[in-house]
Design a protein around this nucleic acid. Structure first.
Length: 376
RNA sequence: GGGGAAGUCGCAUAGUGGCAAUUGCAACAGACUGUAAAUCUGUCCUCUUCGGAGUUCAGUGGUUCGAGUCCACUCUUCCCCA
């Protein structure tokens, strides 16, 4: 697995590249739909490929470990075969659950003990175990096990947490080197930069992480409660240190505006639940701003959701119909909204890439950004 | 014609002497960032300087310090028997 950096847009750090994997090439910058439990919620695999043309999706180690479990995944021949998805998969390590399930987890010297959100049973994740599970899943890109501290964490905690993440990284890396893929395709392990909102910690973490000769690197612990401007400045600090010839993955981000700002600062990969979750909750992202499709004003808007889209869902259905479906709690509404938002996110990064290649990314971004933040 | 039951904020409900009044639905908004989320929050009689103020529980009259709640009559609806 390797990354080719092809272009850098003038006057910015925005980059266009390709990440080559055994399951296909990923053009960057890229957005990766989140499919936590082996399913991008409300979206069919055929829609992901034929309609949205997603080139990679996410899975989650914690969720897949709890259900269906490692044995079933191995018996199935890995997640790709299990879910009939033949493009790349990236798995998060469960590090985010160390954050999001804070009430039912306990950090130990060795790793982290979780109380399952499904049945309350207790499970321990260690860096080694997290690598083993991701080997069983067979994800193309595995993530190192990290702690993702809250955005408002005080310095001392952020530092302690970062050092813990570094020590977990060492163990993940060692175990990654000591083990082999199970299904005949290559797997990469991406280390994760932490350090919260503190520049010196971010620098220290980026340097530490960059010392591993990884295929790519991730920036974690952002968009977790800190101001957006802080996030942008942390990205700048970290990307100044991470190797330029490797992809940078900004974990869990974000809004369309976040994506463009981060791309401008040299980020190549994104994932976020926002297009799918917010879509299911009635929020649509468009080139003209965001729409709350539940609002009364859409009941008689018979325009197609997005006439410029390549997704059938956008061409075939109107705002009024989607308004009706979502209000009626019809499953098709969740599906159309999710497909629309993912199609938009992917067209956003695709168009960004075209302008990076064309050399006018900065101008294009300046023109498009204000509209994206409008609430229609 | 005889007997019985019941009328509460759009709908449905709770309420048996201290109540602007329970809950659900609907309606109207808002939130959502490596998914414990097809979820959650707010508003939902009128006015408000958000502290409150004013009118309410089919209608009218009464008992009471105090009535959605008790009494009388009226109106309306439903059920049973003729």
């Amino acid at each position: 697995m390797h990354f080719d950096l092809l272009h850098t847009a003038p006057r910015t750090k925005a980059r266009a590249g390709v990440l080559h994997t055994d399951h296909g090439d990923i053009p960057t910058p890229i957005f990766m739909p989140v499919g936590t439990v082996g399913s991008v919620k409300a979206v069919h695999q055929h829609e992901l490929t034929d309609d949205i043309d997603a080139s990679i999706i996410l899975g989650n180690t914690y969720h897949l470990y709890l259900r269906p479990g490692v044995d079933i995944l191995k018996e199935a021949g890995g997640l790709h075969r299990f879910m009939n998805w033949h493009r790349p998969i990236l798995t998060d390590s469960g590090g985010f659950q160390v954050f999001s399930l804070a009430d039912s987890r306990k950090l130990t010297a060795d790793g982290c003990t979780f109380k399952s959100h499904i049945d309350g049973s207790r499970h321990t994740f260690t860096p080694e175990k997290v690598v083993d599970i991701q080997r069983a899943i067979g994800s193309d890109i595995m993530m190192a096990f990290d702690e993702c501290p809250p955005g408002e964490s005080p310095y001392n905690y952020a530092k302690k947490s970062m050092l813990l993440t570094h020590s977990w990284l060492d163990r993940c890396w060692q175990h990654f080197c000591d083990t082999k893929p199970l299904y005949g395709h290559q797997q990469a392990l991406f280390p994760i930069v932490q350090g919260c909102k503190y520049p010196d910690l971010r620098r220290q973490s980026a340097e530490y992480v960059a010392s591993k000769n990884a295929v790519g690197y991730a920036i974690g612990g952002l968009a977790v409660g800190e101001p957006t401007e802080v996030m942008y400045s942390m990205i700048e600090i970290v990307n100044a240190i991470l190797p330029t010839d490797k992809p940078r993955y900004l974990m869990g981000v974000g809004t369309p505006a976040n994506l463009l700002e981060a791309i401008e600062r040299g980020v190549d990969m994104f994932d976020c639940v926002m297009p799918t979750r917010n879509g299911r909750n009635g929020m649509l992202f468009t080139w003209n701003g965001t729409v709350n499709i539940k609002n009364k004003k859409w009941e008689n808007c018979f325009e197609p959701i997005d006439p410029d889209s390549t997704a059938a869902a956008d061409l075939d259905y109107t705002f009024a119909y989607l308004h009706h479906l979502i209000r009626s709690e019809e499953l098709l509404g969740l599906q159309i909204a999710s497909i629309h938002n993912l199609a938009f996110y992917l067209s956003l990064v695709r168009t960004a890439r075209q302008h990076i290649v064309a050399g006018d990314f900065a101008e294009w971004k300046a023109q498009v950004l204000p509209k994206l933040m409008v609430r229609i």
